[in-house]
Computed example of a mutant assay.
Amino acid sequence: MLFTDEQIQNKIDLKTKPIGALGQLESLAKQIALVQQTDKISINKASMLIFAGDHGIAKYGISIAPSEVTTQMVQNFLHGGAAINCLSRTLGWHLNIIDCGILTKLSHPDLINQRLGNCTHDISTSPAMTLEQVETGIKYSENLINKLHSDGCNTIGLGEMGIGNTSSAAAICAAILQKPASELVGTGTGINDKQLILKSNLIQKALDRINSQDVIEILQNLGGFEIVQLVGAILAAAKNKMLIVIDGFIVTSAALVALKINPNVKQFLVFAHCSQEQAHKKVLEYLNVTALLDLNLRLGEGSGAALALPLLQSSVSFYNDMASLSDLGIEI
């Protein structure tokens, strides 16, 4: 038996509270209940996935750090010293680090190897990758998500690491929204005005190089190895009817691509926060979604998605355990 939208809403409305008094927690509980289609909803084995990849366009110095920092941060993740490690330990996420294609190949028992290369090509002058690399990346993620699902996970959080990946994300969103680079390019984690102008010009060159609304072609030309695998993870998790917690701008760009491939994915997506990147709010508005949090975050690495877990758990708790008016013999 499928629970209808009306039945789930009625269950929420009849809790011992004024209608709508729990705000976005109510809509979140409803979303989870519609996805899971069970009397008792749950968050099981919540898994945070951080996809890392390097970008050819970073050679122009349009980020606050050189590409080598991607590898250094992946090492930091693996040694437990990054913000996402702290948040995951505190909040209860199981953390997975995926090498999608960083400059230096690392060897660590906790690192998941899904490398598509060392670095994408410079998108301002050539396609980021081959079509075969796109297809392989999506398949890698499908296999990873299927394994997590078979192990009992029903909720994933998605994050990323990659010097230069706000450039790739901005290019993807500009191509899909058919906007000039200047409207979607931002300061990333904190570049100066000169870097911002160069970044905008390079991304506009990338956009001028292609003329297509085919999202796979856009992904091949403008994407990053980590963005491709984020798209694959979203598609696979939706197929498995898992909740998918979307982090900031880069992950949202991947969600935008996934939604163009399969609009039905939307029901499984929870947008954790609205970052300081100027394009993020525009893309969220385009998708007609409201983020749970607005904390002026601009770190990436899944930090905003991680912070959403207590809200998911709180929604589950009130939906399952809060008394109804009829339990108390109250009639209104």
Results as ranks from 00 to 15, higher is better:
Ile176Gln: 06
Leu219Lys: 03
Asp193Trp: 04
Gly117Cys: 08
Ala238Tyr: 03
Thr38Cys: 14
Asp122Met: 08
Ser141Trp: 01
Leu95Ser: 09
Pro66Met: 03
Glu68Gly: 14
Phe249Arg: 01
Asn240Thr: 11
Asn143Ile: 06
Ser324His: 15
Ile123Cys: 10
Gly186Glu: 02
Tyr60Gln: 05
Thr290Asn: 15
Leu25Glu: 04
Ser124Tyr: 01
Lys241Glu: 15
Cys173Asp: 08
Gly224Trp: 00
Val134Met: 07
Gly101Lys: 00
Leu184Asp: 01
Asn262Phe: 06
Gly190Trp: 03
Leu259Ala: 09
Ala206Phe: 03
Ser212Gln: 07
Leu14Gly: 08
Ile41Asn: 04
Leu196Asp: 05
Leu259Ile: 14
Lys205Tyr: 03
Ile261Tyr: 10
Ile197Glu: 12
Ala58Tyr: 00
Phe271Leu: 07
Ser275Ala: 15
Lys266Val: 09
Asn296Cys: 11
Ser88Val: 11
Leu207Met: 09
Ser67Tyr: 00
Ile203Phe: 04
Ser124Ile: 05
Val35Glu: 08
Ser107Asp: 15
Leu284Thr: 05
Gln72Phe: 04
Asp122Tyr: 04
Gln31Gly: 12
Lys11Ile: 15
Gln229Arg: 07
Asp99Arg: 04
Ala65Pro: 02
Ala170His: 00
Ile112Ser: 11
Gly20Cys: 12
Ser315Asp: 05
Leu256Cys: 13
Val134Lys: 01
Met73Ile: 10
Gly117Leu: 03
Thr155Gly: 10
Phe268Ile: 02
Leu309Thr: 06
Phe3His: 12
Leu196Ala: 07
Asn44Ile: 13
Ala323Phe: 11
